Computed example of a mutant assay.
Amino acid sequence: MRKPKKQNKIPFIIMLFIHSSLLGYSFYKSKNKKQLFTLLMADIGFAYLLEYVVLNVFHAYTYKPRVMKKNFFDNVFGAILSQGIFVPFTAVFSTFLKIGWVGKLLGGVYFSLVELLFLGLKVYKHNWWRTIYTFILIPLYFKISDWWNILLDKRNPLVRFISLFNMILVTEANLLFLFASTRKVRFGAGKFHSWKEHFIIVPLYAISVSIFSTVSFLKQNNWSAKLSVLLMTIGLDQIFKKRKVVKEKFHAADYFTVRILAIFLYGKFSDLVYGVRKTSEMEDIQDKMLKINQKQT
């Protein structure tokens, strides 16, 4: 096996510093950090969904940051850096500064030049993808981020629902990548589960968990919602095991610890998107009594 080339990491590290600085500036100046975080996670979720189709299914390009030993993991890790950090961080920065179409087109030019540079440095390779696709899609992606932020301001029900779904999806996808890279879990069909199969099946698993979790936390972030999500994920895991679609090396204590912590995090995401809602009938009664007293005074 070839040893990782240290020089391959340098362009990715430079890009990480640049785009983290853009996001850091946006959060530092923002007066509504909760909504900005929601927008960020929504933008990352959209990028992940596109990447699933373009990279995992149709293998449009290959990343070579030489961070991970296995080429398949290294490729996906490069995609996470690109679609989870470089592009979404810049989209949030663009939306925060209210950059117009000229700036968005310049953003398309910038990412196209970066792509050409990465091709020249051989840390990235096209299979069937073309740089013109990047030039066209980046400004559109930035514009979608703008629209999404406006609809978040208006508390659009569908936008808030999809935002919560994306927040959970991003977390599930990153956790599953961590578990796969540490050999804790592998999805696939048949006796031998290839990593190619894994990265096609695992996003579908993450999407299933995310949809159910979003629906569960839609009305309340309470113990009933948390318990229903926990039971659903346990049941889904058991179905996958019986169908021999997944191989796991988790100790029960580790599994439940990670799953319970994730569920509590999803509840916090729900509060972030929808606000902290009443969790008991007593609070409803107290609220009504307070309103009556205010009217009397």
Rank of each mutant, 00 (worst) to 15 (best):
Y63E: 05
F179T: 08
K278E: 14
S210Y: 07
V273K: 04
F17R: 09
F165K: 01
H126L: 13
A253G: 10
V114D: 01
I200A: 13
N56I: 01
D271Q: 09
G188Y: 00
Y141G: 06
E283W: 00
A173K: 11
L40G: 01
S210F: 11
F217H: 05
K219E: 08
K64F: 14
F12H: 13
I18P: 05
K244C: 03
G120A: 06
K268Q: 14
F111K: 01
Y110H: 08
T214F: 12
D153G: 12
K6C: 07
I144V: 15
K3L: 12
L151C: 06
N71F: 13
A60V: 08
G84S: 05
N174V: 09
W129N: 07
H198F: 03
L164R: 03
M289S: 12
P203D: 01
K122P: 01
L140D: 05
I10T: 11
G108A: 04
K9L: 14
I150Y: 13
S163I: 08
G100K: 12
H193Y: 05
F73I: 03
V109N: 00
A206Y: 03
N149D: 09
R66K: 10
D284E: 12
Y25K: 11
L158T: 02
I44R: 01
V246G: 02
K6G: 14
T257K: 09
S145P: 06
S112L: 10
Y133F: 14
Q294E: 10
I200L: 15
L151Q: 10
I201A: 05
K122N: 13
I285D: 12
H126M: 08
A79W: 02
G78F: 06
F142G: 04
F199Y: 11
Q238G: 08
I14M: 09
D153E: 14
F93M: 07
L178E: 10
W128F: 10
W148Y: 13
G275I: 11
F161K: 09
I201Q: 05
Y25W: 10
L117S: 14
T257H: 06
I44Y: 02
I162S: 02
T38Q: 10
K154H: 15
E172T: 15
V102E: 09
G24M: 10
G235E: 06
S26Q: 02
P157Y: 04
T233V: 14
A262P: 01
V229I: 13
L231R: 05
A79K: 05
N222M: 06
G84I: 04
K122D: 15
K184Y: 07
F192K: 15
K295F: 09
F177P: 08
P157N: 08
N127P: 00
S213T: 13
V67A: 10
T233F: 00
